[in-house]
Design a protein around this nucleic acid. Structure first.
Lengths: 155, 155
DNA sequence: AAACAATCGTTGACTTTTTCAATGATCCGT
DNA sequence: ACGGATCATTGAAAAAGTCAACGATTGTTT
């Protein structure tokens, strides 16, 4: 399985000072990764975002739409659209909030969990592909640093 | 100077398996960083992208618009718009390509370099803010890993 | 050297995504 | 019970992304 999609060699402009800007590095790696991920998910009729929601619906954490919006950095109205689609396809369901009846809890169906298992495998493979140039330890360290930068200490 | 903007504490949903997805981590950190960066650049009438182009125009690398598009993961037509704006404000100029007269080389004006110096300071500060929870070594390591994932070995 | 296909910047049309205000239902504090 | 806040939802407006076509120029083929 050959690596493809990402820049194979360092472009000339990477030499500029901006080649060390975290913002740019994140943007580029994120952009490249999205292409790979969406390509991997296309077989399942999913995209990065719907996959994220499906994953969280399968997590057992019983997220509300508001939590999904906050966690995924989306507008609540975008979550509505994404959940509408997944629900229409029978992959997730809206359940009434337990303490709060305004809230809708998103849970997966059995079909949704089957779909998620397959899609997860494709995503893991895509991620492996994207980080192919890193060693296993480096990949782990990268993820740890990203998590720490986002959510502080923890571990 | 207090830290603000990023999630201060780990959200409940981060516990899900997806909390380790590189794609999601990149998306979230990138989103959070963009807010900080654009806020820092607002004083100069710049945004992340125009700042990137200005930086590369100041780099001495004499990038063509095509190179800018490739490097910044933008459509060539988006580069046109961005350069139009910077040129209208007298920060950069379009010079004729040297080997290729179809290409336009983007170079900074003296005014553009003054602007860049000030904006760069603001950006560095914003970056420091975003990575405040990481140690100096960790920040360096994060950048190294991002660069490696993007452009392979190098250093 | 003439013809051909490919590339660069640019424009304009088109689609998708983002953003935001407004709404009914429900929750919470007083 | 009242008032203000929050939830999901809708719809409209703004912004961003995508894409095909064009003139000018390049490199390649004949």
């Amino acid at each position: 399985m050959a690596t493809l999609g990402t820049d194979v060699q360092t472009p000339r402009l990477a030499a500029a000072r901006i080649g060390s800007d975290v913002g740019l590095l994140l943007a580029k790696l994120h952009a490249a990764g999205s292409v790979l991920n969406n390509r991997a998910l296309a077989d399942f009729g999913l995209r990065e975002r719907s996959f994220s929601i499906l994953t969280l619906a399968c997590s057992g954490l019983e997220p509300t739409q508001r939590e999904l919006a906050d966690f995924l950095s989306l507008d609540p109205s975008q979550v509505v659209t994404l959940v509408d689609d997944l629900e229409r396809r029978g992959l997730v369901e809206r359940a009434q909030g337990k303490q709060d009846r305004r809230a809708k809890i998103i849970v997966s169906t059995a079909e949704g969990r089957r779909m998620h298992t397959k899609a997860r495998a494709a995503m893991d493979s895509a991620e492996l592909d994207q980080l192919a140039v890193l060693s296993g330890e480096e990949s782990q360290e990268l993820k740890r640093l990203l998590r720490k930068a986002l959510w502080g200490a923890a571990e």
